[in-house]
């Protein structure tokens, strides 16, 4: 697992050189956990995991006790819930509007949010553990 993780980091740094705030669709697969948070998750959960409240709420991820369960976090990212879109969908064609991250990336971003923003959960999750969880099929994009 570690090997993949290191490889991701190397690929990702070349991506970073290209453009700090934007990555082509083709290169999204090489973002690491922190980069995924900055490029994608913070669109809703805001920088620093601060969350936001308007007509509805994007939950604060900072100092969030619910993150104690890695399964909860990983399942949320894989399958989405309510206003949170699923990220574990199968890959579609190039112009697809689907949002897709690999299991390794999901593991990495789960580890990232559980160990940052005043969260201090020690256990880490592997790509293989994420693979073991239920994923959405092409047809099923809603929550479980």
């Amino acid at each position: 697992m570690k090997g993949i993780f290191v490889m991701l980091l190397i690929l990702a740094s070349s991506v970073q050189a290209d453009s700090p705030a934007f990555t082509s669709r083709a290169a999204i697969g090489s973002l690491n956990g922190e980069q995924i948070y900055d490029h994608i998750c913070q669109g809703c959960h805001m920088p620093g995991g601060a969350g936001a409240i308007a007509a509805g709420t994007y939950p604060k991820l900072a100092a969030n006790k619910k993150l104690v369960s890695w399964q909860f976090v990983a399942l949320t990212v894989l399958n989405g819930r309510n206003g949170m879109p699923p990220f574990g969908q199968p890959v579609h064609h190039e112009q697809s509007r689907a949002t897709h991250l690999t299991d390794a990336q999901i593991a990495d971003v789960v580890n990232y949010v559980r160990s940052h923003f005043d969260n201090n959960f020690k256990t880490t999750v592997t790509s293989k553990q994420v693979t073991g969880l239920p994923h959405p099929t092409a047809e099923l994009m809603g929550p479980q």
């Binding site: 669109g43 509805g56 309510n82 994009m141 929550p143």
Partner: peptide, 26 residues
């Protein structure tokens, strides 16, 4: 629906599930 999914409302389970089943596009 992303807003409604977070508003408490006493309706049937089938309607609640439907409200939660539709993610919104970016």
């Amino acid at each position: 629906l992303p807003v409604l999914a977070q508003i408490p409302m006493n309706v049937s389970q089938s309607l609640t599930s439907a409200i939660c089943a539709v993610p919104y596009a970016a």
